[in-house]
Design a protein around this nucleic acid. Structure first.
Lengths: 117, 117
DNA sequence: TGTCGTTGCTACGGCAGTCGTAGTACGATT
DNA sequence: AATCGTACTACGACTGCCGTAGCAACGACA
């Protein structure tokens, strides 16, 4: 079973979180469930990774926290800076993808039948 | 100017090096030039990153070193284990790409004109 | 002959993000 | 009363990237 290496995802956890927060404020547990659901369980973000991302991004001004009104949760909303950052990461992703793909042999990927080498 | 984040590339430097070594033995400086050339200068691997990758991959049994016959260089060749590892990384990449893309808004990428939001 | 630029490499240490482990606390369920 | 799910926080280890520095051989150029 192939798993996603955390080295690759490193630096894109923030992007995933921001993607979800673009749809409206949310909190840790729900975001983690959404990531799991959106990836069909292929990627499950670790709790500590998630919460340390919150701290980092709040410090960087990408998100803002506020307490839930009817519950104990800490909610987060995306800021203008966070939106800009998200946008940059999207552009960066396209570039990165293009670059990495030049070093990937398509014959090894699942879509192929393996007859070409 | 958008640059490739080293966080994303982290863990794929090895893959890039192995891709080049699949074509035959090579050494540090030449590999770095090939990476630069293959990416049209979009990605330039740092010297220390490259040489520490050699050390790590040799320790892991993915590559083997041998001295050049007519020069002072240290050459590397890919091993069977290295080939397997490279293959795994290719498969992993496809999965990762698919996962990350679900969190990327296409409207922000360069191919688009920006009219859709 | 001296110096400069390129090649080819090693050593050291800092940094940042991920993640394992652990612990707390509350509410609902059994 | 105990267990499970929810909702966090704290701490510290680990890994890979990279800045800085240094060294040595070689060719070109003046």
């Amino acid at each position: 079973m192939i798993e996603i290496s955390s080295d690759v995802i490193r630096g894109y956890n923030d992007t995933m979180i921001l993607f979800i927060l673009r749809q409206g404020p949310s909190y840790g547990y729900e975001i983690s469930k959404q990531i799991k659901q959106m990836t069909d369980g292929k990627y499950i973000i670790k709790e500590t990774t998630l919460y340390s991302a919150f701290t980092r991004m709040e410090k960087n001004g990408f998100i803002e926290s506020f307490p839930g009104e009817a519950d104990r949760r800490t909610y987060y909303r995306i800021t203008e800076n966070g939106l800009s950052y998200y946008k940059e990461k999207c552009e960066e992703w396209e570039l990165t993808k293009e670059v990495v793909e030049r070093f990937i042999s398509k014959s090894f990927t699942e879509e192929q039948n393996g007859y070409n080498n």
